[in-house]
Design a binder for these strands. Structure first.
Lengths: 291, 291
DNA sequence: GCCTAGGTCCCGTTG
DNA sequence: CAACGGGGCCTAGGC
């Protein structure tokens, strides 16, 4: 089959490995873009291997439905007996093996792998080796139901309203959200055990140490904050005010909070986003008035 | 197209929404199983919607390559502009939106969602709503390159050599791996802050408190173990011997380990698996001699 | 390379 | 229902 014949071949369909193919003249149809869609249905293993090699070489997205076994060996090991799975190989060298249920892949390899397809003893073997940490994923494919190779045109930006970061940005943009007159001195301030999310002073000159959580604040965050306090001190005659900023307090954590002298300031992600939007608007207005 | 005509239709291919279809008589071919493979190539949005509804109803695996935008709203929110993506919907009601790169989906919804496909204003809208926590994922599909619905036959068992658990089992099966004469009293022993992995006595009658890590042991595990110790005591005249069992010690953690009086016993996952296999073999032999 | 922290983490178990 | 820990977690950022 000639991959370069843009106007005569749309879909190559080989049935049950018997070399039966369906060709369709497309000269009369508006099918620009379709020629980049090789789709094999029930190809022979050798046909599938050829297509995989071409797709891997071109770093296309490979989508395969096949019966296979899967072995993983590396940080630990795993074995999965034969069954039909959805196998995805992406252009950046990652691979996902999905079963018919569950959000997570049953086996996978993150991006940066060396992936190859080889014939072996009447089966098709797909190997994905990750150099560091050294680990390898091996699929022994017995039968391919479907194999498609795609080129995804996708330049869109992904925007996530990312919880903790947005809460931090909201506090930085509008420190009043913590309390009237609160001033920020630093954020992501390094202390030996980690980083203080926000660090500032109140109107009395006391040092405020803020730990932000997007989820209900529980014991771990209290411990974390107390740990940080060991390495911080207030100016002479002033106090250290440890404070947790979160949407709520976890169920059993209230007593520990009171006992440890940590303050709690409620801030929901929603409110944080609202603040950011307000500033984005005023930024826009500032920009407008500038022009 | 008649889905029930097992012997006359294999693949329905509709091109660019123009209703062009390719049919192939399969009466002469051995194609059992192929009829369960409806595959649409560049269908119209309405054709795709029909197929999606049928596939969702039948709880099949849906694999779609389409140009779409994606909105997520729930625990946080996200926006993704138009672009071509691989969309997977599984029978248990989870959905994955993958871009051409990266291991992880750009958007998703875990299993247990209510998923529906509807026509809307010349577009196809795919919605996945998760009841708790309440969150929703919305795909506005502008163009479908490919849509396949599959039924994956897969009853195989997945076996993972699961790090910490296997290390614990190895110690329980063969306590000598810790030291000669070590005897186990309990495991997963409850103390207020959590669970002690393994709890036992040495030949001198001292209490040994073991925390297992599959990764290099760092500061957090030292703290955790010291926390547990507060709630444990040795018999009169005996010592408490806190011990970390792990493949190695994290770089900076050695001094803290020495200072805190915690012992370290090296155990790699590999060795643990070897022990388990030895016992599996002896189990088999015991079974054989029994028969 | 190691280590730290966050994630729409997901996922199981337990209270 | 919430909370807790583990994961082949993955991923990004620092050192």
């Amino acid at each position: 089959m000639d991959r370069a014949s843009y106007h005569s071949v749309i879909v190559s369909v080989s049935l049950a490995g018997k070399g039966v193919s369906i060709y369709c003249s497309v000269s009369a149809l508006n099918l620009s873009g379709l020629t980049k869609l090789p789709v094999l249905i029930s190809p022979s293993l050798e046909e599938a291997r050829r297509e995989l090699v071409i797709g891997l070489e071109a770093r296309r997205l490979l989508v395969m439905v096949a019966s296979c076994t899967v072995e993983y060996s590396g940080r630990t090991g795993s074995h999965l007996g034969e069954g039909e799975r959805l196998v995805i190989v992406k252009g950046d060298g990652c691979i996902l093996v999905h079963r018919g249920r569950d959000y997570q892949p049953v086996n996978w390899q993150p991006s940066g792998c060396i992936i190859q397809a080889q014939a072996s003893n009447g089966t098709l073997v797909l190997k994905a080796v990750r150099p560091s940490p050294l680990e390898s994923l091996t699929l022994v494919v017995k039968d391919v139901q479907f194999l498609g190779t795609f080129l995804l045109q996708d330049d869109a930006e992904f925007v996530l309203h990312a919880s903790e970061e947005e809460m931090q940005r909201a506090i930085i943009l509008q420190p009043d959200v913590i309390e009237q007159g609160f001033k920020i001195l630093d954020f992501e301030k390094k202390v030996p055990p980690g980083f203080v999310d926000v660090y500032g002073v109140d109107t009395e000159g006391n040092t405020v140490v803020i730990e932000i959580k997007k989820d209900p604040a529980g014991f771990p965050v209290i411990k974390q904050l107390l740990e940080y306090l060991k390495y911080l001190q207030a100016p002479p005659g002033k106090k250290l005010r440890p404070m947790i900023v979160a949407p709520s307090i976890a169920k059993g954590a209230q007593p520990a909070l009171a006992k440890s002298g940590i303050e709690f300031k409620q801030l929901t992600l929603q409110k944080a986003v609202a603040i950011l939007q307000k500033y984005a608007r005023s930024d826009q207005q500032a920009l407008k008035s500038w022009l």
